[in-house]
Design a protein around this nucleic acid. Structure first.
Lengths: 171, 171
DNA sequence: ACGTACATGTAAGGAGTTACATGATTTG
DNA sequence: CAAATCATGTAACTCCTTACATGTACGT
């Protein structure tokens, strides 16, 4: 359900091609909901058939430009008022529970990799944060999501640093 | 891949029934990897067929008790040394990007619900934290996971409170 | 000319959800 | 004796991943 609504939601802001949507997912939405082209293109065809989006034009190389229809926008707003599915899966977080099966040195390698990944991602988000002041409503919403990422990552880095000191004591 | 390894990993600590594993997932692992009985039971059958777990006995009501085999333990450790899949999907986090499609009052309702959910979850984790001192290696690993949850939730609550003040300014 | 990025699609298989289905034991 | 919990399974469906597949336009 999430992917189809996110696609309409992005198209509610401005018309885009399937490829444009793909790139937009890769650049920002992927932090919350990764999606590949093999999922996006068929889903766009379904949304088109249901009248939730429509094709407004064509670009070079056979690119199709879509935009959200009023029905599509209604559907997104209805979705936003429903209870979100709070289940989250994180392979990396799951592994923490089993670190005791490795020797402490190997557990430390894992935690250091986590910390480094968080740091890299934080630097990336801080770069985006510095890029431009949010002005439009959409930009302000994206900024709210961005700040969520920043605060969460800083907490995760703090945790990873603490956890590394902790596993030192396991030796 | 994650579920099958997590099942072996839990059974590496002590023998359990399928139902016992289900309850254990619901109580602690679900924060990182939710799993339902309709996934767990068939997966146990597959792990048994592959020799990664074995049945050690039977409890009342036809319950089957499993434990990890040495092959299973090797497999978990191999898994722990591979690169984790860092993709994470969060329906709730995705919705943030589309809050500008609602009016600010409705966006605030969403954010307040998020904040409340985080607070409830934090209280739950703090209760678990206070329960007992970790003593065994397994308990220490679980505590590392728990502290990760605590720090992350506190950051998410801080974010939700900031975001609520932010959307007030959208009116 | 060659490589990269643009642009779209399909197919097979694996993972996960929801619903259907059944029965035993304990607790009030 | 009724309800809750224990205990296990299957089936249909949806979602997602990986791989296969094809062609266009642009920059160097």
């Amino acid at each position: 359900m999430s992917l189809r609504h996110a696609l309409i939601g992005v198209l509610a802001d401005e018309p885009r091609t399937g490829y444009g949507l793909l790139k937009h997912f890769e650049q920002s939405l992927a932090y919350a909901w990764p999606a590949s082209h093999s999922q996006i293109y068929p889903e766009l065809a379904r949304l088109l058939a249901k009248g939730l989006i429509r094709q407004t034009g064509a670009g070079p190389r056979g690119a199709r430009v879509y935009e959200a229809t009023p029905d599509g926008l209604d559907e997104v707003c209805r979705w936003l008022r429903t209870e979100p599915d709070r289940r989250v899966r994180s392979d990396a977080a799951l592994r923490i529970f089993f670190l005791w099966l490795l020797d402490p040195g190997e557990a430390a390698v894992f935690l250091a990799a986590e910390r480094d990944r968080f740091r890299t991602l934080l630097a990336e988000l801080e770069r985006i944060e510095a890029e431009e002041e949010p002005r439009t409503p959409k930009q302000r919403a994206y900024r709210v999501a961005l700040v969520g990422g920043l605060l969460t990552l800083r907490a995760r880095i703090e945790w990873a640093e603490w956890a590394l000191r902790e596993v030192e004591a396991w030796r």
